[in-house]
Design a protein around this nucleic acid. Structure first.
Lengths: 189, 189
DNA sequence: CACGGGTTTCTCTTACTACAGAACTAGCCG
DNA sequence: CGGCTAGTTCTGTAGTAAGAGAAACCCGTG
């Protein structure tokens, strides 16, 4: 049926390793272990899996799986897949790595930087008309705000560029500089 | 003495806001609250501060301050500053935002992506000569590995570009594309 | 309309991390 | 060599988050 003889007691070593690493990799990040593990498993699977199969292979509780799947759906890193003649829901992972990256980037941005930018804005406004605050502090807050805003805009622009082109851009690396009409400043050393 | 009348009971509102926000912003990140708060405070200060002053302004324990400062030093986000005729150590923050960004990026890379890359390498090797693993899984692992490696290399190249130039690059945004000799492929759809 | 598989929500336990305060150590003065 | 002051390490506690298992909830089917 499947290439990995399905219901075998355990997973191939390489897969298990991957799942494990991805798992606590996720831990270091904002994502919790089970979520990351499930994602890893689905990413490597050659067919959609259902909750039971996942639970069996990873040895984690149904409830946990349910919640984790929900979270992964939120991040849009996996999707529901209807399977003919099957009642339970099946899931498969996004396998396009660019998609994956942008989804994750998007998610983290929303959770981490957007609030920060907002907070900075209010701080800046506050600092504007607070006579007690030092010139230096005011300047620093402004600098920070401008910087973050610039980066944010940049990010926004980048994700509108079609992946393929962005990829060539990246593969070029610093060679991009050679095409740009900048004052040919010899990079200092 | 200082511009903010130093030993006043509390901080200017804008500063307090900034510290607070930066603080739990840090919490969302990997950094804990006290560390982020101390960093924020130093970033806004117009002169180096010592541990006592920090403790007083933020109301956190000495031990905590000691550890937090150590961590900030690790990240190279602050530095020790000797002050004439003073026995206690003083600290000031890096105020160049590019520096800050690269330091943070560097730190996170070391902690988050480098280990991941390493793990991926071993997984890939493992998958190479494991007959049990499915073709699909093997392919996915390789794809992931290549992708991550590419991004890693790119990052490495980017940080070698002098900040000023990088900044102009960023300010250009997607305009960079217009200068590049790419086959003017109409983006598909 | 009861029954049963499938899924979600709730609750309780456990593990971990941040942090305060105390105890400890190291340099500097008389 | 005592007595101070600055700094660090240790220890106990409280708050938080992950996750297991049970209970509740659907919804199709006999």
């Amino acid at each position: 049926m499947t290439e990995t003889t399905g219901r075998e007691d355990s997973l191939p070593v390489a897969v298990r390793q991957f799942v494990l690493h991805w798992g606590d990799m996720g831990g270091q990040w904002g994502v919790n272990r089970s979520v990351a593990q499930i994602h890893a498993l689905l990413y490597l699977s050659d067919r959609p899996l259902n909750a039971d199969e996942i639970g069996e292979k990873l040895g984690i509780a149904r409830s946990n799986i349910s919640n984790s799947l929900k979270e992964l759906l939120n991040w849009k890193l996996i999707r529901r897949v209807p399977v003919m003649g099957e009642r339970r829901e099946h899931f498969e992972a996004e396998t396009d790595l660019w998609q994956m990256l942008t989804r994750i980037a998007q998610g983290r941005k929303e959770r981490e930087v957007d609030p920060a930018v907002a907070a900075l804005k209010t701080c800046r406004a506050e600092a504007e008309n607070d006579p007690r605050i030092s010139k230096v502090a005011r300047g620093r807050i402004e600098a920070m705000h401008d910087f973050v805003t610039t980066m944010d805009d940049w990010h926004q622009e980048m994700i509108t560029i079609p992946p393929a082109r962005l990829m060539t851009l990246i593969k070029m690396g610093r060679k991009v500089l050679t095409f740009l009409p900048l004052g040919r400043t010899k990079p200092p050393k």
